[in-house]
Simulated scan of single mutants.
Amino acid sequence: METSKTINYSGTFLSCFFDNNTSCVHATKDHTLVYLYSGKLIIEERNKETIVHPGECVFIRRNHRVKMTKLYSDTDQYKGISMTFKRNFLRDFYSEIDKNHIPKKVKSLKESIFRIPLRPDITSLFQSLIPYFDSAVQPTDHIINLKEQEGVYCLLNTDNNFFPVLFDFSEPWKIDILDFLNENYMDDLTMEEIAAYTGRSLATFKRDFARVSDITPQKWLITKRLEVAYDKLKNQNKKASEVYVDVGFKNLSHFYAAFKKQYGFSPRR
């Protein structure tokens, strides 16, 4: 029986969950607009929680990681559409608009998650996408591009402060690699993702990491996870089956093998 479905059209995609809830860490490399049709969406960033109900829409800034929990109800499946705005698309959009219409002296929004007020233009935009997901007719790239342009205009009409957010093409600031890894060692991230979140290309990340550690990033992560697991097992009386997922291992057998290789004895001890 089908329990979930995701359909992706050039960065605009529908997510459906029929009879199961799901929770995951979502990496927003690009600005993302999320509209909820049914069910319930909980977005967590550090200690802040944003709850999205059907008919509501939220904007998530690029280069942020959030935990998204998608819930179905007794009567409705979870169903939501996400629209991403890639940097190249925004550059092209910016090059075409009349710069005289750009408001002066506006401050960039500080929030990484911004709730969009309920407005007819937002509702109309996402309702117009439904037929493409409910049928076998695939929209052309031109159609998706027009819908994304409509999404940008919806944001700009919502708040002038979106201008400096959407059209900021400066490179992200580099952040301390070890600070980032110590905070996020338990997450399932590729080296490319870690590089991007610390404001670097993969090559620059590897070069910078070699300056602060004499082991590879992969080895550093495994060592860090095992050290935290060791502390939990020894000082918190936890069981291996209780800690291996918390520290970032995908399965128990891999955790046992890595632990024994590093410490010379089984985590059962």
Score class of each variant (00 low, 15 high):
Thr69Glu: 02
Ala258Asn: 14
Leu166Thr: 08
Phe167Leu: 06
Met1Leu: 08
Asn63Glu: 08
Ile194Tyr: 00
Pro139Leu: 03
Met191Gln: 08
Ile122Tyr: 00
Gly199His: 02
Ser38Glu: 09
Arg91Gln: 11
Lys99Ile: 09
Val243Trp: 10
Asn235Arg: 06
Tyr197Glu: 01
Val25Leu: 07
Val228Trp: 03
Ser108Pro: 03
Met68Ile: 14
Asn145Lys: 12
Leu71Arg: 09
Ala195Gln: 09
Phe93Leu: 12
Thr84Lys: 08
Lys239Ala: 08
Gly264Leu: 01
Val66His: 12
Phe249Asn: 00
Ser95Gly: 15
Val34Ala: 06
Thr223Met: 13
Leu221Asp: 09
Ser73Thr: 09
Asp141Leu: 09
Ile43Tyr: 05
Lys29Met: 13
Met68Glu: 13
Leu109Thr: 02
Ala210Arg: 15
Arg91Cys: 10
Met186Lys: 11
Lys234Asn: 04
Glu183Asn: 12
Met191Trp: 13
Ile51Gln: 05
Thr204Met: 13
Ser15Val: 07
Tyr263Met: 00
Asn20Ala: 10
Ala229Thr: 10
Glu49Trp: 04
Phe162Lys: 00
Asp246Lys: 15
Leu181Cys: 08
Asp159Ala: 10
His142Leu: 06
Val243Tyr: 06
Lys219Arg: 14
Tyr78Ser: 05
Ile130Arg: 09
Ile194Gln: 02
Phe255Arg: 00
Ser95Lys: 15
Gly55His: 08
Lys260Phe: 02
Ser82Met: 06
Phe209Lys: 08
His64Asn: 08
Leu233Glu: 08
Phe167Asp: 04
Phe209Arg: 13
Gln77Arg: 05
His26Gly: 10
